[in-house]
Every structure is written in C-alpha cells, then in structure tokens.
Design a protein around this nucleic acid. Structure first.
Length: 465
RNA sequence: GGUGGAGUGGCCGAGUGGAUGAGGCAGCGGCCUGCAAAGCCGCGUACACGGGUUCGAUUCCCGUCUCCACCUCCA
C-alpha cells in the first residue's frame, strides 16, 4: 500500500505521487511572529514534522520550507505600543517559536525564509499579475482582482464568489474595485516600515509572501502545502489564486491540521485563552506534550484538558518504561527490523497516528511479556521495532532529543554507584528477612526521588517522574 | 446566508455495512512479589436524536438538535 493523504482541494483521501520521483517538497505556513507560540501553533509544527519523518522513512528526500511572516498589522501595532522598531518584536517572537519547535522535537526545516527578505520576489509576482490583468495598483496599494479570476476563485475552499460576504470596510479598502479584492501590497502609512516598489513605497499584504517564497524555494509547482484549517480561507485560497493566476502550478496537495480548542473555543490570543508552550512545559515534559499532540489524528479537533494531557503522559511512560527496561538488557539494536504492518498501514492511511500509537502499545505489551519471560532475543527484536516506530513519531525516549533532556550520563553513573551500595544493604536485609529495614531503605530512596523495583533479573532503580 | 468539521464506554481517542467494540487512562478481579512497584491475564448491554434504504446501520441516504471553524487578524 502506498501513501494516501487527505487533500483539502478535492476533499478526498487520494494517493500521494510527488512531482519529482524520490523527492517531496512541502511548504508549511509557519508563524506570523506577533507573539510567543501557544500549543495550537506547535501542534501544526508537530503534525507536519511527523508527516516529514514518515516521508523520509519511505525513502523520499524531503524539502521542508517553513516560512516566517515577520511583518503584519499586529507586529507593527505591538512595536508601536512598545515604542520599538517592528523587527525587535519580530525577532523576539521568532526566537520564541524556534525554541518551542526545538523543544517539541520538530526537525529544523530545510529552509526557513522570511517575508521581508523576499520583497523583490513579491514585486516580480505582482508585476506578472498586473501584466495578466489579475491585479491593479490604486492609490499606492496593489490589489488582486477577484472578478478577473471569478471562475476559479474559491475553488480551494469550495466557495462561490457570489456567496462571499464583502469584507468589512476599513480605511484601506477605499481603492478596491470590488470589496472582495485582497491587498497584495499596502501603501505606506506614516510611521510604518516601508519598502520601495514601482507602485510606490509600502509593505506586503498578508498572502503574497507565501506565494513568492514557496515558488522560489520549491519551484512553480510543488507537492504539499500545509497549515491550520483556519488558514484555508482567505489565506490559502488567496495564495493559490494569485499564484495560479500568475501562471504557476503551485501546490498539488493541500493538508490542513485541525485546531486546538480550549473551553470549546479556538485557542487564540484575542480570546485570551491561549496556553503558551512555555507554560505547558511546566506541567509535563516536552516529549509527553508531543505524545499528547500526536495521539489524536492531525485533522481532528483537540479540546484541550489538563486531565487528558496527564493521561497522555501516563500512557507515554508505559512505553518509555518498556524501552528503558529492555535497553538495560539489549545492547545492540538492529536498525533493519521491519516495522509492524499495522503501523505501516496506519501511517500510509493519511498519517493515522492514533492507530500507529496503538501498534506501538501492542508491541510494548508483547515486549513486556518477553521481558517477564526473560526471552532476550524476543525483547531485542521488539525493542528494535518499537524504537523504530517511536523514531518516526519523534517519540523515542532514547533518541538524542529526549535522552539529553532527562539526565546527565556522568552524573547518572555516580548516582548509580551510590544507589548500588544502598541497594546491597537492602538486599542483605531482605536475605535475612528483615523486611522492616528493607522497606525503610526503599522509602528513604523514594523520598530522595529514586524508585526501586524488584524484578526477576534483580533490583533496578530509576528517577521518579 | 455560504463552506467545512464534530457529537463513540467513567475519561481520552480510532474505526467499520454484519459474526469477537482499536489503543490508552481510570476502575474491578486474578497472576507475579516477603510486601510493593512494574508487568502480564481477564472484565466494557457505546456510537446525539428521528426517519429511510438493507437480510442487517454506529457506518449509507434524508431530516432535526447541539457544538466548533472559516467567510479578509489567526496554526
């Protein structure tokens, strides 16, 4: 079975075939860096990171272009409120986003272009649109003329032009020929940052940057364009309209992740209900937060609750427990074991991470049984396949990403030596059936944050979570 | 008004025209253990509501209700 993905433009799950064999190009709408990220933003990053890892596993050379929109109304407003230049706000929030993506284990994108670094490409695109009669300059603004493209405008979001509500009037709308026309370029206003164009100084509108950057880095036609469903209209519709009207093929598959809601409403700064990533990581470890996000299908809405998050953390620790215990007796992990078919099928079916995780739990259960039986060969095989699945989801507790987060290896060896001395005394107490002493030692270690477990292979310890 | 999406057991969350209801969490019983912990085994009268199609619908169709998102700030 090959990979099937849900394509928003056809509203069907269809077979994925890349433009160029062996290579996949993905453009992901990243951040508009107007504020630090909440977990909804990072959900999108994690969802597409999993897609990317799966495509890589399938043998594709994956090019991921994740943009940074570093100029918009809100950035300008925040900067004005703080009395600093726009780029101070943009840079500060850009760093918050980078930190959060890294913290959640998202692999860095192949390229991460910024809107303000691509003004010439935007000018070139606007010139092509004006040439073809799909855009016009008016009063220093440049607008896309939706009526010149009326037969195709709305095809991505499945809407008809005549059904669209006219845009709420704002002062910048006065030069539009049609209220539904959207700004490619906004004329300079006093105190705002500007760049020079043939139509006068100004700054980019919201959608133009993505078209300009996607085609610059990925080509005029590329494979996958992703983002949250809230971007479907107008953002993605407008991107597609302006690019295709200009003669580019643009995205062949559109993937949209579901939103994260809190209290039944979309998480957003304006509603005051956003949960910052930095705050969440005080509640659970980053890998547990990632597990929480990956355990729902990417297109499903997630209604956030702390209880569900804690459950996810507990479920993850079950997996982690097996991997940790198995790795204590298995030292050479075979990287070439086949993945369980259930996992492969789940991932190929529109990145079915819930079923993929179910497959992991199945392996863990088998692995725990093998561990109890002391069947080392079987443990080795199951550990190998389990880690391989976990790596694809970015959840392997022994990966570079998550291992370093926990404990320092050198320090761990020191603690191990100390704990071993104490455990020897406990073992001696147990041998003479002095259980009061043995239990007292165990309690003292527990108070120090060390959990002791007696197993058929002997006593082991680990740090409490 | 238009366009999408959702409503599944105590909770989270998949999925399917049927014969045994993914997986996890919680709970109960058992095994293991000196006791624990961890683990394993077992235990669940579910699919918002009303019609229809069908031998059979949670799954398909029609309608209703509730909720979410978008309709030019949004992941």
């Amino acid at each position: 079975m090959s990979l099937y993905l849900h394509d928003t433009s056809t509203r069907t799950v269809r077979e994925f075939v890349p433009v160029k064999p062996g290579r996949v190009s993905i453009y992901l709408c990243g951040a508009t860096v107007q504020a630090p990220p909440h977990i909804g933003h990072i959900r999108s990053g994690v969802n597409f990171d999993v897609l990317r890892r799966w495509l890589t596993h399938l043998g594709y050379d994956v090019w991921l272009c994740r943009n940074v929109t570093d100029i918009d109304d809100k950035i300008i407003r925040v900067a004005a409120e703080e009395g600093v230049p726009w780029f101070v706000v943009a840079e500060r929030n850009y760093r918050h986003f980078t930190w959060a993506y890294d913290a959640l284990g998202c692999l860095p994108p192949t390229v991460e272009p910024r809107a303000t670094g691509h003004i010439p490409e935007m000018i070139e695109l606007m010139a092509r649109l004006i040439d073809k009669g799909h855009a016009y300059a008016a009063g220093g603004d440049v607008y896309f003329d939706v009526r010149s493209y009326a037969d195709r405008y709305g095809e991505l979001s499945n809407q008809k032009l005549e059904n669209m509500r006219p845009a709420a009037d704002t002062d910048t709308d006065t030069h539009k020929r049609d209220p539904r026309d959207f700004a490619l370029w906004k004329a300079a206003k006093p105190g705002e940052p500007t760049w020079r164009t043939p139509w006068g100084p100004g700054r980019p509108g919201w959608h133009l940057e993505c078209s300009a950057m996607a085609t610059k880095y990925l080509g005029s036609t590329f494979d996958i364009h992703g983002g949250g469903v809230d971007l479907l209209f107008p953002h993605h519709e407008n991107e597609q309209a302006q690019s295709r009207a200009a003669g580019d093929g643009f995205a062949r598959y559109w993937l949209h992740n579901g939103l994260l809601t809190l209290g039944g409403e979309k998480m957003s700064k304006s509603l005051g209900n956003s949960l910052l990533v930095s705050e969440m990581l005080k509640v659970v470890r980053a890998v547990e937060l990632r597990y929480y996000l990956v355990s729902a299908h990417y297109r499903s809405p997630i209604e956030y609750s702390e209880e569900a998050l804690q459950e996810a953390a507990t479920a993850y620790r079950r997996i982690e427990g097996f991997v940790t215990r198995a790795a204590e007796i298995v030292h050479d992990v075979d990287k070439d074991v086949p993945l369980p078919q259930a996992f492969v099928d789940a991932m190929n079916n529109d990145i079915g991470t819930p079923q993929a995780i179910a497959a992991i739990h199945e392996s863990v259960r088998e692995g725990n049984a093998a561990l109890a039986q002391g069947n080392k060969d079987r443990v080795a095989r199951i550990l190998a396949e389990t880690e391989k699945m976990l790596d694809i989801l970015g959840l392997n507790p022994r990966s570079e990403q998550w291992r370093s987060a926990g404990d320092d290896t050198g320090l761990r060896d020191t603690v191990d030596a100390l704990v071993s001395v104490v455990l020897e005394q406990r073992q001696a107490a147990r041998a003479r059936k002095d259980y009061a002493t043995a239990d007292a030692i165990r309690d003292q270690l527990a108070a120090a944050g060390i959990v002791v477990e007696d197993t058929p292979q002997g006593t082991r310890w680990e740090l409490a979570r």
